[in-house]
Every structure is written in structure tokens, then in C-alpha cells.
Computed example of a mutant assay.
Amino acid sequence: MIGAGDFGVFFNPNDFGTLATLHLSAGDKQVTGIFNNPQQTAKLKGGGFVEGDKASLLLPDHDAAGLNVRDRVTVAGNQWQLVRTPVPEGSGLTRVYLGAKDAKQSSNPAIQY
């Protein structure tokens, strides 16, 4: 069984991990996560491809702490913005859903929550 201590193998940048910068109000925070970019398609040996539906970053819970909707994240040289509240998966990991960050976008939500 895989435990929290085994995550280091998966998050290693030489394996599945991707370096990311979380741009928090308290300052930038460097983390390593598993990046899923639906624009990067996987080709199948027999033909065709598999494509995801939403860009996301999987982080250990402690690295995702303090993230909020509309926070900025830099992953793989691109700026992203959190499009919804981070979702704990119950296994010590949190999924962060990302949307394209446009310099023209406001950092304040138009709708008050």
C-alpha cells in the first residue's frame, strides 16, 4: 500500500513531478506537483489519442494549504489561475484546477461569495 511517505517518488521532477510556483499573497512558494494539461495529448500505439478535460495540478495537502480561487500559479513556463477551490482527494493529496491566466483578467471576483 502506498503511504504519504511514498509520494516523493511520484513528485520527483525526474519522474512524474513538475516544478511550479504558487503566487500567494504572503509571497511566492516553490512546489513540485503532478501537472495534467489537457492540451498535451497522449498518442495511442494503435492510433488515436487520449485527452483530459481540465488542466490541474496535484499537490501534497501541505503544499496546497493557503491556495484560493484566482490565485496565480506558474507551471511549465505558463501562468495559470485557480478556477475553483482546491479539492482534497482524501489521500494526502489536493487537486488544484487551473484556467488560462490573461493579464486583462481582474484578480477580484465579479460575484461576491
Rank of each mutant, 00 (worst) to 15 (best):
residue 25 S to Y: 05
residue 61 D to E: 13
residue 21 T to P: 01
residue 81 Q to M: 15
residue 84 R to A: 13
residue 84 R to D: 13
residue 79 Q to S: 13
residue 86 P to I: 02
residue 86 P to A: 12
residue 17 G to L: 08
residue 83 V to G: 15
residue 17 G to Q: 08
residue 87 V to F: 00
residue 20 A to D: 10
residue 25 S to K: 15
residue 86 P to Y: 03
residue 82 L to V: 08
residue 44 L to C: 04
residue 83 V to W: 00
residue 68 N to Q: 12
residue 11 F to K: 02
residue 50 V to Q: 08
residue 65 A to C: 03
residue 23 H to L: 14
residue 93 L to G: 04
residue 81 Q to N: 05
residue 30 Q to T: 14
residue 62 H to G: 08
residue 72 R to G: 10
residue 84 R to P: 00
residue 30 Q to I: 15
residue 28 D to Y: 07
residue 35 F to G: 03
residue 49 F to K: 06
residue 19 L to S: 15
residue 90 G to Y: 03
residue 95 R to K: 14
residue 48 G to Y: 11
residue 87 V to A: 14
residue 42 A to C: 00
residue 34 I to W: 02
residue 83 V to Y: 00
residue 67 L to T: 06
residue 23 H to R: 12
residue 92 G to Q: 04
residue 79 Q to G: 11
residue 8 G to H: 01
residue 52 G to L: 02
residue 8 G to A: 08
residue 22 L to Q: 02
residue 38 P to S: 13
residue 63 D to T: 02
residue 13 P to H: 13
residue 20 A to I: 10
residue 94 T to Y: 03
residue 51 E to H: 03
residue 97 Y to I: 08
residue 39 Q to K: 10
residue 23 H to V: 12
residue 12 N to C: 07
residue 32 T to Y: 05
residue 15 D to P: 00
residue 63 D to N: 07
residue 39 Q to M: 07
residue 85 T to C: 02
residue 5 G to E: 06
residue 28 D to Q: 14
residue 26 A to I: 01
residue 94 T to Q: 10
residue 9 V to M: 06
residue 45 K to C: 01
residue 26 A to E: 13
residue 47 G to L: 02
residue 96 V to T: 13
residue 30 Q to H: 04
residue 63 D to L: 03
residue 86 P to D: 13
residue 42 A to I: 12
residue 66 G to H: 12
residue 51 E to T: 07
residue 13 P to G: 15
residue 81 Q to K: 10
residue 36 N to P: 00
residue 71 D to G: 07
residue 55 A to K: 00
residue 68 N to E: 14
residue 69 V to A: 13
residue 45 K to A: 10
residue 93 L to M: 14
residue 50 V to E: 06
residue 17 G to S: 14
residue 34 I to R: 09
residue 27 G to D: 01
residue 83 V to E: 15
residue 45 K to V: 09
residue 36 N to L: 04
residue 20 A to T: 14
residue 22 L to E: 05
residue 81 Q to T: 08
residue 81 Q to Y: 02
residue 73 V to S: 07
residue 66 G to W: 07
residue 28 D to K: 13
residue 39 Q to Y: 06
residue 95 R to S: 12
residue 75 V to Q: 07
residue 90 G to V: 14
residue 73 V to T: 11
residue 13 P to F: 03
residue 31 V to I: 11
residue 20 A to R: 04
residue 36 N to G: 15
residue 51 E to W: 05
residue 19 L to D: 15
residue 95 R to Q: 12
residue 41 T to C: 00
residue 21 T to Y: 00
residue 8 G to P: 01
residue 84 R to K: 14
residue 75 V to N: 11
residue 66 G to E: 13
residue 53 D to R: 06
residue 94 T to R: 09
residue 71 D to A: 07
residue 6 D to Q: 10
residue 76 A to G: 11
residue 55 A to P: 05
residue 8 G to N: 06
residue 5 G to L: 05
residue 46 G to N: 11
residue 48 G to A: 05
residue 37 N to H: 09
residue 44 L to V: 12
residue 17 G to M: 09
residue 4 A to Q: 06
residue 23 H to E: 08
residue 95 R to E: 11
residue 43 K to W: 10
residue 42 A to S: 05
residue 54 K to V: 14
residue 35 F to Q: 05
residue 18 T to S: 15
residue 63 D to A: 11
residue 57 L to K: 06
residue 37 N to Q: 09
residue 21 T to K: 09
residue 41 T to D: 00
residue 15 D to I: 04
residue 34 I to S: 03
residue 87 V to Q: 15
residue 91 S to G: 07
residue 46 G to H: 06
residue 24 L to I: 02
residue 3 G to E: 06
residue 96 V to F: 04
